[in-house]
């Protein structure tokens, strides 16, 4: 298949970027989206031109490295799919595809399509853990957790930290990311002792990183490659209220 690509090129965080046009002539519909970009990059390198920088690693939809806004959608047109799992069979021969980085104040562009998402790490550092030192754990089956609760916690824990929720939100809010972690640990008994501290500290750090307020439009849920649910945000809000009253 033949494709026209409009790709955002930007030298560095302080420099202005712009769209550049490229065309790919012999793409296969069985290629993944990133393989199509590899294919483009090989041809650029052979001509001595700079390859397009983009983040990727596992290419199985689990490491959360890949990003890209494709035709206006974080991770492209398919629901519940990370860019690395998107295949060219979802596009048509002759299509024009616009490829941009995730855009948010808290995610500065490093180069081209590669952005800095370390703000998420700092939010985790603020409270996304259970305080238990190695060697200090009780026997695993001493903590009973019902199947439904364990599965709910697992659904929240499935977040890959890619930041699509932020890229999709008009306020660039990180509520879905933060709430998924808060929910996982609030649902489980292990997370109980530091429940209030955790939610307060994580939300405070989120604000400090300049993520916006929740827009309540649910675009984060629609863009999430792991289909993390909005109910996590509701739970985060409840946890904040609970923290104010109980702790």
């Amino acid at each position: 298949m033949k494709l026209h690509l409009k790709i955002w090129r930007q030298k560095g965080p302080q420099e202005a970027g712009s769209f550049k046009d490229y065309s790919v002539d012999n793409a296969s519909e069985h290629m993944s989206f990133l393989e199509m970009l590899d294919f483009l990059n090989t041809s650029l390198v052979q001509k001595g031109e700079e390859a397009v920088q983009f983040d990727h690693d596992c290419r199985e939809g689990i490491c959360g490295s890949c990003s890209l806004v494709i035709n206006g959608n974080p991770h492209g047109p398919e629901t519940g799919t990370a860019t690395c799992q998107l295949h060219m069979r979802k596009f048509k021969d002759g299509d024009t595809i616009v490829i941009e980085p995730f855009r948010a104040k808290a995610f500065p562009v490093i180069r081209d399509l590669s952005v800095n998402r370390t703000a998420f790490d700092r939010i985790m550092e603020a409270g996304g853990f259970c305080s238990v030192n190695t060697g200090n754990a009780p026997e695993a089956n001493a903590i009973l957790i019902g199947k439904e609760t364990a599965e709910k916690a697992m659904d929240s824990a499935a977040c890959i930290g890619c930041g699509a929720c932020v890229a999709a939100c008009k306020n660039a809010s990180a509520m879905l990311f933060v709430s998924a972690k808060v929910s996982q640990l609030a649902l489980l008994p292990q997370g109980n002792p530091e429940r209030g501290r955790r939610v307060r500290n994580m939300v405070a750090q989120m604000d400090q990183e300049m993520f916006g307020a929740c827009s309540n439009t649910g675009s984060c849920e629609a863009a999430c490659p792991k289909e993390i649910k909005l109910e996590n945000i509701a739970r985060l809000n409840r946890e904040m209220v609970r923290a104010a009253w109980v702790e």
């Binding site: 060697g135 754990a137 695993a140 903590i143 364990a150 489980l188 292990q190 997370g191």
Partner: peptide
């Protein structure tokens, strides 16, 4: 397994 459960790893149950 004990350590991971204490950290909040949601193993199947």
């Amino acid at each position: 397994i004990d350590q991971c459960v204490a950290q909040g790893v949601p193993f199947a149950r």
